[in-house]
Design a binder for these strands. Structure first.
Lengths: 243, 243
DNA sequence: CGTCAAATTGACAAGGCTCAAGTGCCGTGG
DNA sequence: CCACGGCACTTGAGCCTTGTCAATTTGACG
C-alpha cells in the first residue's frame, strides 16, 4: 500500500512545493503517506454531499469538478480540477461534505487517509502552511466565480472560465495554455457558468466567429490568448500563483 | 495598545471557541494580541484589491461585506460579515488582496498585526485548527453563493441570502433569526445576488405579498421562517455550525 | 422646510431559456 | 464491414425573466 519507491506522490509534491518552501523532511513525510490508487471512468462520483469523509482524494491525472445541486435538480459546478489538485482537503477539518466531487474525464486518483494527513500537518509546520495556503487559493477562486456568474455576460463568463482553466492547466505542467484542448462537454461548461447547454453552444459559435477560439465541435482551444484575456477581463492575480 | 483587561477580544474568542476546542493557553494568547481599535462609518473601505496586507481586521460590531468589481464597474458582493467575523484571515498566507472589504453599516473593527497572528498560529496548534476551520467554512459559503447566483431564480436567491444572513447573525449571538431586521439597502442585496436594485425591489414586494417577509421599506424581517427556508431551498449544512 | 439617499413604479428592451427538430461522430454488435 | 444506437453538438422560433431608463415618492435628518 505504502510506496516510497514509485512516483505516485509526485503530482502532490509538485503542487505543494509551488505553494510553499518544503524541507526535505516535509517531502519525506509526504512520500511516506499511505496511498490507495484507483483508476476511475469519466463521470464517477468521488464525494457525495452529506457524506462523512475519512479519506482525502488527490487527482493524479485527468480532470474533475466539484458541484452542488439545486432544488429543481439543476447542477452548479463550483470548480474544475487538474492533475496535482487535492480534491477535498476541506475535510481535514470539516466532517461532512457540502458538495459532490466527480471525475470529468477518465482519471487516476489517490486516496490518503485523512488521519495520516492530519498527522503530517501536525508535525510539519511548513506542510501545514502549504496546505492551508492551498485552501485559501481555493477560496479565492470561488470568490472570482461568484463574480463571474453574478456580473458577467454569458460570453464573458465562458471566456473567463476558459482562461482560468487553461492557465491552471499550464501551471500544473500540462502544457501551454494556448495549446490546451478543452476536455469538457458543453454541458459541463453550462453547469459551470450558470447557463444552458444550448446557449453555451451559441456563445461558442460567436467566440469562434470572433477568432477568439478555434477548432470544431468538442475539440477546441484558445486561438487568441491576449484577445480572450481582454474580452473576459481575466486578471489572474486571484489565482495567487508563484511569481 | 495591548489590552488584557478589556473585553475587546471577546467577539473573537466567542467565534473561535465555536470553531474548535481552545485551551486556556490559547485564549490567553488571543487576549494578549496587540489590537488597534477603530470606529468606521458605513461604506468605509477596509481592504482594497491588489493591496499588500500586513494587518488582519476583525469586526467587533456592525456589518461588513467583501466584494469584487467587474470590467464595466458593476460590483459583486461575495460575502457579508457580522460581529465576531474575521474579515481577511486569508492574508495570513496570501500577500495580496484579491477583493475589497467594506463596512455596510457603522462598525467597530480591530486591527491585529498579521505577524502577531502568525506567531500565535505557530505556537498554538489548536488555534491554528480553529482559524483554518474558519477559512474552510468561508470557502463552503462561497461555494453555496456560486450555486445561489448561478442556478436560482431572483426570488429564491434573495430569500436564500436572507436566510443565510439571519442564521449567521443568530449564531453570532445577535438575536433570533426570525427577529432580525435586515441592515442592508436594496442596492447591497442586488450586488450580492447578481441582480439590479430595481428588480430586487419588485421581488421584495412579491415576497411581502406571499407573507414570507414583513415590514415596510428599509426595515423588514423574515415573517415566515419555515416558508422562507422551503422556498429558498435553504439547507444550512454548508455553514458547518456546531451541533 | 430643504436635501439627499433609498425605495417605488411603469413602460419597454433584451439576453438567455425552453422546446423541438435535426446532424455528426464514435463505439458496439451482428 | 456495415447498421445501429446513443450522446453530444447544432440550429430555429417564440417566450419569459430580468435589465434599462426615467420619473416619482418616501423617509431620515439637519
Amino acid at each position: 500500500m505504502s510506496s516510497k519507491l514509485t512516483g505516485q506522490h509526485d503530482p502532490l509534491v509538485r503542487k505543494l512545493t509551488g505553494l510553499g518552501n518544503l524541507t526535505d523532511d516535509d517531502i519525506g513525510a509526504l512520500r511516506s503517506l499511505p496511498i490507495r490508487e484507483r483508476h476511475l471512468r469519466a463521470g464517477t462520483l468521488i464525494v457525495i454531499e452529506d457524506q462523512l469523509i475519512s479519506e482525502c482524494c488527490l487527482l493524479l491525472s485527468g480532470y474533475a469538478c466539484r458541484h452542488k445541486v439545486a432544488k429543481d435538480g439543476s447542477r452548479q459546478i463550483v470548480s474544475f480540477h487538474v492533475a496535482g489538485d487535492i480534491l477535498d482537503i476541506q475535510h481535514l477539518f470539516l466532517e461532512q461534505a457540502d458538495h459532490n466531487v466527480q471525475t470529468v474525464t477518465d482519471a487516476d486518483v489517490a486516496f490518503i487517509p485523512m488521519n495520516a494527513l492530519r498527522a503530517v500537518v501536525e508535525s510539519n509546520p511548513s506542510m501545514a502552511v502549504a496546505l492551508w495556503r492551498d485552501c485559501l487559493v481555493d477560496a479565492s477562486i470561488f470568490r472570482e466565480w461568484v463574480l463571474n456568474v453574478g456580473r458577467r455576460s454569458a460570453a464573458e463568463r465562458i471566456a473567463h472560465m476558459l482562461c482560468e482553466f487553461a492557465m491552471r492547466c499550464e501551471s500544473a505542467g500540462l502544457g501551454a495554455a494556448s495549446e490546451l484542448t478543452v476536455p469538457m462537454t458543453q454541458d459541463y461548461i453550462a453547469d459551470a457558468t450558470g447557463l444552458t447547454a444550448v446557449h453555451v453552444n451559441r456563445v461558442l459559435r460567436h467566440l469562434r466567429e470572433q477568432g477568439l477560439i478555434e477548432g470544431a465541435g468538442r475539440a477546441f482551444k484558445i486561438a487568441d490568448w491576449e484577445g480572450m484575456r481582454r474580452f473576459a477581463d481575466f486578471r489572474p492575480g486571484y489565482l495567487h500563483l508563484a511569481a
